[in-house]
Design a protein around this nucleic acid. Structure first.
Lengths: 361, 361
DNA sequence: TCTTGCAATGTAAACGTTTACAATAAATTG
DNA sequence: CAATTTATTGTAAACGTTTACATTGCAAGA
């Protein structure tokens, strides 16, 4: 395969000139440029970006580390990252952690060995020192879907605590007081933990006793949601509503609930989290907490590029979580006896905004 | 940042030895190895895969070119590719074409400049000479979701023609004879074209007149499906069933049909194509043609790795398309007057297997 | 003890760019 | 037209590995 020196020889110029034709065409006289381009064609010259990367210590490549591209939320975000990066002529290497910290660790290592110029990471856990290392070395990276709100980190995420609170409050306001939650394993994702925290805080604020029987923890998939809701429905005093820590679970819950003979939403109100595209297409359309995945991915990329240019000032871009009310939630007990001795109380005013997201030490 | 020579110096060995410690640890005596490893730690040595790639002309990276990662089918496939590649310690660079041939062209170029070791491509069009070039140069690549069945190409795909035929036949068998189709633009994807071809052939085989008013062409999204079905429903003699060239469209059709006041499946039978995960979770669960996206991605990766090892023998892995009958299809006119003067005839026996997929010239 | 052979290590070139600096050519100025 | 400035091109080192080949060290066999 021909190289820059072959081209140079053929065109009767130096390699430097050829390089210039490639990188800053206007710094070379038109006549020479044409000569060189002709030579390139004759040689069937193929640029070697690897050699360039080696010489310049830049790969024009960024890494995207997410739990699983098969989850629509992450796929949407990936699309956002991609689209932004493509506009800057940068490629993205995708890495899936499958929600395992060790994978995250080894992935980051490999990507850095590949000399990616920056990293966008959806952490599975903040326990390890991957981030700390990156930080110490001043390597540009941004956390996507992170809950961390402080520290010298660049972050784009939503307020998961608040989302959990809002979702629950919506159900309470409709009159529910047996509200279950189906959550991802807390060990797997602190996002889920914060959502649960919001849920719990809200219950407390409205003086609804927390019943740990109404919490199911699983992994993030429709199948899991379907199984989990059946478990929840089996307890002695089953919930009239469930809050799911993502839409995938919620979709599964719909299926499971119907298989158990429940009508939706009359017999079971369901709230999700994410607002993936299908959620608005399903019947009944899913009430959920919106997380604009595409935009978040895009924004993360934007932040990363800023960071790569001037490594100084990290930015936090935290979205206010927002409740999208659709058809999957309604007042409880329609067509059934209503447990009317319950009336929700005013919440303590601080609860909603008292988000104690974890801080990276 | 420290390099192999720093380490070598510190450990009192040659760079060759350090390199050996990295690449074939057992070819060096244990004592030396330990010395080297200790030196690496002290230097905080970081391996430079870019330099390696430069030296060896291998990047341990493959490229995956798909229309859009936000489409669940491609996301699943990407996951399959990823998972397989990860097992081989290879990373994947993701590229989205947004269904545009020019993008595909430039993407392939960029990825080759980056010296990916191989390519998995879901073509948008077989018109251009991207593939021909790759082929001529003996560059390893496999086509994913391709319809091409001949030529020295490695391919994994399903028989789209047959899928279209089966879907349509299912509807005919249920008694439908006003069967619409919502397809992706043929210019955008030959997959859609072949599915339509199967649809048309099936109609002919059962002596049902083809009505081009019942064909709607759009891009691939739920929104488009929703809009398209409304258009179809508006014609003078509207369809009692529609075949959608993918599940995303079908999901949109469900929404659109219901918004038009139709009951599903009584007033409109719907068949999709792909069998994405949500399709079995939706109500009514979607009848569709199965395309095992994850496995296909995995298989494509497997084929690619074979090809990268011994560039000789391309393989075709064409799946037999399979109809998954669920709840979104039923006999027409339930609760309405039945147009009973129609009885389907036996089809000509050749039609189903006469797949004339296009051949790359 | 001397060979012989193998295992472990070293030497140095090669990979294809970029880029600081030097050299030359062209354009401008007085 | 000479002097100066500016635009264009050339020279050569540097980037961090790998690897073919050469060398050395060591153990075993005679």
């Amino acid at each position: 395969m021909s190289t820059i020196v072959d081209v140079a020889k053929l065109a009767g110029v130096s390699t430097a000139t050829v390089s210039r034709v490639i990188n800053s065409p206007h710094s070379v006289r038109e006549r020479t440029r044409e000569k060189v381009i002709r030579a390139m064609k004759i040689c069937n010259y193929k640029y070697n970006a690897l050699a360039r990367g080696f010489a310049t210590k830049q790969s024009n490549t960024i890494g995207l580390v997410i739990p699983a591209i098969s989850n629509p939320v992450f796929a949407e975000s990936a699309q956002g990252v991609q689209d932004y990066a493509a506009g800057r002529k940068v490629q993205v290497i995708l890495g899936n952690t499958h929600y395992q910290y060790e994978q995250e660790e080894s992935l980051v290592k490999t990507l850095r060995e590949k000399r990616v110029d920056g990293l966008i990471i959806t952490t599975t856990s903040l326990k390890g020192d991957v981030l700390k290392d990156l930080l110490e070395e001043g390597f540009p990276f941004v956390l996507l879907y992170s809950t961390v709100k402080s520290g010298p980190l660049s972050v784009v995420g939503v307020d998961n605590y608040r989302g959990g609170y809002l979702a629950t409050e919506h159900l309470v306001a409709l009159g529910h007081h047996r509200i279950g939650m189906i959550a991802g394993n807390f060990s797997i994702s602190d996002r889920s933990y914060h959502r649960w925290h919001g849920y719990r805080r809200c219950l407390r604020a409205y003086n609804i006793p927390y019943d740990k029987e109404l919490l199911a923890q699983t992994d993030y998939s429709m199948d899991s949601g379907r199984d989990a809701v059946k478990r929840l429905l089996g307890v002695k005093n089953p919930p009239t509503a469930v809050f799911c820590s993502n839409d995938l679970l919620a979709l599964g819950v719909m299926k499971g609930a119907r298989e158990s003979g429940l009508r939706l939403p009359q017999d079971l109100s369901i709230v999700g989290f994410d607002d993936i595209q299908t959620s608005s297409y399903v019947i009944p359309a899913l009430t959920t907490i919106r997380q604009p995945a595409y935009e978040m991915g895009r924004k993360a990329a934007e932040l990363l590029f800023q960071l790569m240019e001037s490594p100084a000032k990290p930015v936090q871009w935290m979205l206010r979580s927002e409740l999208i009310t659709r058809e999957s939630t309604t007042a409880p007990g329609i067509g059934k006896k209503l447990n009317s001795d319950f009336a929700p109380q005013k919440p303590s005013s601080v609860a909603l905004n008292n988000n104690d997201g974890e801080i990276l030490s």
